[in-house]
């Protein structure tokens, strides 16, 4: 069974004449260890889709199953626990806490879960080393570059050993070199560490790191592109498909 199973997801904002349908009967499945990119122009509903999959927002219609659990029926606390244990998030603006160092930032999900501070810090340190920040453990966000901050965020997303990582425009605030590094890191999350990754982006080059790309327009999934070892990282191909959408 797929790790994520979304059926006929619809999200309407507002009501009456000003109602806006951000997502319109979207259905998709994501397998374990799969890296899926969601692409589309601004306002096509890709972030909305990501928030619904992560249980941050509730759909107007349809349902989301994560690891066999229908999240629509969960209470707010149960859903929060599910996010904490099964899902990791990476945001465009990193969203690190400026007053905490890299280790404490990365350890946050464990700390919130009540894991003893020492243990949480040890595991956060391990993950920071894996994402290549072993030498910046005690740095605070303002002492790190954008790419480094996003690595901390990736470590934070992985520290609780979730099965799924959701990334919302993770390279939106980065230069090209850092963007490439982060995209590569997310590829590694799927390949080496065996998590499913769903990433929203509008950058064809970044999307081309994924196994599969979903194209969204006006809230509808209009196309899908599978990339195998042979055409992986072929940005031109992706860009061309995007133009056709």
């Amino acid at each position: 069974m797929a790790l994520i199973q979304a059926e006929e997801l619809t999200r309407v904002y507002g009501a009456g004449e000003t109602a806006v349908t951000a997502l319109d009967h979207a259905s998709l499945g994501v397998e374990a260890r799969e890296f899926v990119a969601v692409m589309g122009p601004s306002g096509c509903g890709k972030s909305t889709l990501l928030y619904l999959l992560g249980g941050l927002d509730r759909p107007s219609a349809g349902r989301v199953m994560i690891d066999g659990i229908s999240i629509g029926e969960l209470t707010d606390d149960a859903l929060t626990r599910l996010r904490r244990q099964k899902i990791g998030f990476v945001f465009q603006s990193f969203n690190l806490i400026p007053m905490l160092d890299a280790v404490d930032n990365a350890a946050l999900p464990l700390t919130l879960d009540g894991v003893a501070a020492e243990k949480a810090r040890t595991r956060a340190t391990e993950w920071l080393q894996k994402v290549g920040l072993g030498n910046r453990l005690t740095s605070r966000p303002d002492q790190l570059s954008g790419g480094q901050q996003q690595r901390v965020a990736v470590a934070r997303a992985l520290v609780a050993e979730p099965r799924l990582v959701l990334a919302d425009e993770p390279t939106g605030n980065l230069d090209t070199r850092s963007s490439d590094e982060i995209a590569g890191l997310l590829r590694q999350v799927a390949d080496d560490w065996g998590r499913a990754v769903v990433m929203v982006t509008h950058d064809a080059h970044i999307a081309s790191y994924a196994d599969r790309i979903l194209f969204l327009r006006d809230g509808v999934i209009v196309d899908e592109l599978r990339l195998d070892a042979h055409n992986r990282a072929n940005a031109e191909l992706v860009a061309e498909r995007l133009r056709m959408v």
Partner: peptide, 16 residues
Amino acid sequence: TREIGMLRAIGATRRQ
């Protein structure tokens, strides 16, 4: 606000 949103996203309960 955004930080609180992040905390909630990565698993802080309302109580926390």
